[in-house]
Structures are given as structure tokens and as C-alpha cells.
Amino acid sequence: MRKASKDPITEFLYTNQFSSVMNRTKWGELADAIRSNPDFYPSVRIKYLDEEVSGTRFAGLDWEWVKYGDSRVIEWMDIDSTKRTHIGRLVGDQITDFSTWVRASLQQHSIPFSEADGIFRINGYLKPNDK
């Protein structure tokens, strides 16, 4: 018989049969890699363990929190690899694609990811039937 954990995060992960993909070291490496390019400050979308539904909007992120905070609560993170620079009202935004750089940075640090349409997903955990 399993003894109940005093840590609510560990108990949640065990009860819901989550499998860990990332650890604190890997989240720190991700934060360092993303911050290493001064021209790229990505918008991200995060799903936390205690959320039923993730947010649909991308926003900036405090990468110091990812590195030093309790990253155990991140179920997954999407990184938008494009940088949009507002030019003016009559001219569309300038779009710079950093997908090659993001992909190389993730591979350099052996961070598992999936990619679709310039969005990189980094899973902190997988549910039993996730792929």
C-alpha cells in the first residue's frame, strides 16, 4: 500500500498518472537558451497542472521564474518562434522567424519538443494516453 505524499504536487502527479518529461535542470537550460539571444523575446502559452483549460493567448514570460521558481507546476509550454515588430498603422508588422534558432537551441540541450507551424511545445509531463 502506497503512503500518501505530503507534497500536493507529487500527490496530484501520482493520482493522475502523469509521467515526467522535464525536470528543474532542463527547465533551467531552456530558460538560459531562450535568454541567450538578445534579439528574441518569445511569446509563450503555458498550461499549469492545476488548470482545467489552458489560456489561448500568447504572452511574455519571466524566464527567471522558469529557471529558479517552481517549474514543477508546468504541464506544457508553447513557444512562438516568430517575432512581430509593429511598424505603423498603414504597414503590416515585420515578422522575423526564429524557428531554426529555437529548434537548434532545444536540440543542443536535448530538450524534447514537438513543432507545428512555428510553435514549439515543450511538455513538462505527459498524461497516460498522450503521445
Rank of each mutant, 00 (worst) to 15 (best):
D97M: 11
F98Q: 01
R89H: 03
F98C: 02
S99K: 00
T100Y: 02
V102E: 10
Q94I: 03
I95Y: 07
I74V: 15
T85P: 11
R84F: 03
A104S: 12
T85W: 10
M77L: 12
T82F: 03
I95G: 02
G92K: 15
D80H: 13
G92R: 15
I74T: 04
E75C: 05
S105D: 00
I87T: 11
F98V: 01
R103Y: 02
S81Q: 12
R103G: 05
I79C: 11
R84H: 08
T85V: 15
I95W: 09
T85C: 10
I87V: 12
R103F: 01
H86V: 09
G92Y: 14
I74S: 12
D80L: 09
W76R: 06
Q94V: 04
T100N: 06
I87D: 03
K83H: 03
T82D: 00
T82A: 06
R103K: 11
R103S: 03
R89C: 03
D78W: 00
V102Q: 12
V102L: 07
W76P: 00
V91F: 11
D93A: 10
L90V: 08
W76L: 03
I74A: 11
W101L: 05
W76T: 05
D78K: 01
T96N: 08
K83E: 00
R84C: 06
V91D: 04
T82N: 04
V102T: 13
M77Q: 08
R89M: 05
R89N: 08
I74L: 10
T100K: 15
M77E: 08
D97L: 04
S105C: 09
D93V: 05
G88K: 07
D80G: 06
W101I: 01
D93S: 14
Q94F: 01
T85H: 13
T100S: 14
I95E: 03
I79N: 15
S81G: 13
